[in-house]
């Protein structure tokens, strides 16, 4: 079994209205001085069997083709050693 984690964030130059909404709510709930909030996505992918080089290469490709849109988003992909 292998676990792969992909984090996807909007590029810094893309407006994040959801992050803005959360920023406003944090302020209203008493947290002063919130300079910025960005909201992203995390994909936790559990695999049956081994995570060999071939599957890793495919996952790396799909992280850029399906899980994120390179026009507006950046992604980070990593193996999670502690995954079950």
């Amino acid at each position: 079994m292998g676990r792969v984690v992909v984090d996807v964030m909007l590029k810094p130059e893309i407006l994040d209205p959801q992050g803005r909404a959360v920023q406003g709510a944090l302020g209203r709930l008493g947290l002063a001085g919130v300079a910025d909030v960005r909201q992203g996505k995390q994909f936790i992918i559990d695999l049956d069997g081994e995570l060999d080089d071939e599957r890793w290469a495919l996952l790396e490709r799909l992280a850029g083709e399906l899980l994120s849109n390179p026009v507006i988003e950046d992604y980070r992909i990593r193996r999670d050693q502690d995954g079950q």
Binding site: L10, I14, L15, Q18, R20, A21, V71, I72
Partner: peptide
Amino acid sequence: LPGALTRNASR
């Protein structure tokens, strides 16, 4: 087509 469509600025 180039570019992308993202959440309305007004939310």
